[in-house]
Design a protein around this nucleic acid. Structure first.
Lengths: 147, 147
DNA sequence: GTCTATAGTGGGATAGAC
DNA sequence: GTCTATCCCACTATAGAC
């Protein structure tokens, strides 16, 4: 709260005239983040390479907002305090891109999140080719369902 | 440190007679964790379903040690303070299971980590079938490389 | 190797004047 | 809506007696 107040140019105590507590502020940020993500994913459109383009949009957005991405994906999601339908709206493009199967979409999301959070946390070896890893994952989830 | 001291039955200050600081303790825990993981992954053996069994071993171990798993995968990895070769030993079974391609192994690891950390953090919807999602991911990375 | 006591830091939040 | 002043708590770590 103090760091934020510094950025805004006021004292930390003054923030509590605008927001009840720290968590409410976080929820507002998370809400804005999901809305931005939804816009980004919807803008890639449909087509054969939709999954590839969603993957790129996912990574690009997260790397551009690493702290917000971490806030959005770590710990309990405050579903009750989020605008109804927002989470579904942000995830719909991916579900569509993998053919409508929510199970497959969940797996693809786990891959994307794993790649992203490991990159943000600097966990990959310095020489790792992350573009290639993303391509391998996207290609794995693009193919027909053999299972 | 106080919670640990309580568990051990001594005062927090006394811990510093055994370990220089908190980080050294964490590094010791991380080292033990990787050794345990390596044992678990090596014990699945080779074969056509090695990838499936490694996936199950990965998830089982992580869910059994959620706090240690988080400690091992969050933030910077203290590579310089880890026993040489330990990280490689823990990851070798996966690399072998995906056919020796480190890029493909990296993608499969990202999927496994994504599934795992999202499950530990309770981020999946309550009705999500995680067994099915794991199966979908494993099947995606088991198939031949079309990309 | 254990203890008590304490230093030092940081962070969330409130009270009340203006 | 901003400020100053302050409270309260949690936490890592050290000093020094035993």
């Amino acid at each position: 709260m103090r760091a934020l107040a510094d950025r805004v140019g006021i004292r930390a105590a003054s923030l509590y005239k605008h927001v009840p507590d720290k968590r409410a502020l976080e929820v507002a940020l998370i809400t804005a983040g999901f809305a931005e993500q939804a816009d980004a994913f919807e803008s890639v459109g449909a087509g054969a390479d939709a999954l590839d383009r969603i993957g790129r949009a996912y990574r690009t957005w997260a790397v551009a907002h690493p702290h917000l991405y971490r806030l959005m994906t770590e710990g309990e999601l405050p579903r009750a305090d989020l605008p109804p339908g927002l989470e579904a709206r942000a995830s719909l493009p991916l579900v569509t891109a993998v053919g409508g199967d929510p199970v497959r979409a969940r797996a693809a999301w786990a891959f994307a999140h794993g790649m992203t959070i490991l990159e943000i946390d600097g966990r990959f070896p310095p020489d790792a080719d992350l573009d290639a890893a993303w391509a391998a994952g996207v290609s794995a989830f693009r193919g027909g369902d053999p299972g």
